[in-house]
């Protein structure tokens, strides 16, 4: 049986990297007595995969992972079993049974929501001006950024990768492209804005939080973004 689990990553655990979060959940499955499936061989691995790695230092309200189990009572029980053995800051908020042919979360990822705020003491003097500028920046026909890599510099247009960008209560909200094809990081959007306005934000200026991860149930031309928790769910 395939199961999709949604969880949060808040507080100090934001400093735990993606690989260690995977290890953390492998141990958590055992502590919670989840009847998870293992691969064959001398060192069997749990059948478990994560939707999208989260960078060190980012918090999240919308992380997803898929597991396969041999048996289970129901989704609420799995949620309770896991939440009884979680570390502070990691909380399972949803659990869904998937159809057997459901695609795994990782291959579905198309977009993600982020909120961006200034870290304490890092906001610019003209905070209002900063946010107004950001909206002007977003409304351009092309949103260009110079990307530096080992091969040299290259200009990229982010316009089609930013689905939504707004400001409310000194909080930036963005819905941007994510996943294996066009992965846009929120940090890069802020960097593009810095390049555009010709002013660098101080190091570690932003607190970034992932809010949700989406799959696309439409097509490329007319995307229909649906939270991963609602895709492939089996209805019993």
């Amino acid at each position: 049986m395939k199961i999709r689990i949604k969880f949060t990553k808040q507080g100090p655990v934001k400093f735990v990297g993606h690989l260690d979060i995977m290890r953390y959940f492998q141990k958590a499955m055992r502590r919670a007595d989840i009847d998870i499936k293992y691969s064959e061989g001398f060192s069997p691995h749990q059948v478990m995969s994560f939707a999208a790695p989260l960078g060190v230092g980012l918090t999240s309200n919308g992380e997803y992972m898929d597991i396969e189990v041999h048996s289970m009572k129901d989704c609420d029980t799995i949620m309770k079993q896991l939440n009884d053995v979680m570390a502070d800051g990691i909380c399972v908020t949803e659990c869904h049974c998937l159809n057997d042919d459901a695609k795994n979360a990782m291959s579905l990822v198309a977009a993600a929501d982020y909120t961006v705020t200034f870290r304490e003491g890092k906001a610019p003097a003209d905070e209002k001006g900063f946010f107004e500028g950001l909206l002007t920046f977003k409304d351009q026909d092309h949103i260009m950024i110079v990307k530096k890599s080992k091969k040299g510099e290259r200009e990229v247009d982010l316009k089609n990768l930013i689905y939504q960008l707004s400001v409310c209560d000194n909080k930036i909200f963005m819905k941007i492209s994510s996943g294996s094809a066009d992965n846009l990081k929120p940090e890069l959007v802020m960097e593009a804005y810095d390049q555009w306005r010709g002013e660098a934000s101080p190091e570690f200026a932003f607190c970034i939080q992932r809010e949700e991860v989406y799959g696309n149930t439409g097509n490329e031309a007319n995307p229909v973004l649906v939270p991963l928790g609602l895709i492939g769910e089996s209805v019993e």
Binding site: P12, F15, V16, A87
Partner: peptide, 17 residues
């Protein structure tokens, strides 16, 4: 800022299970 600029910050945060 300090935790993000050093190696393996999770060494210093406690909060383990």
């Amino acid at each position: 800022e300090i935790l993000l600029s050093i190696e393996k910050p999770a060494r210093y945060i406690g909060n383990e299970v």
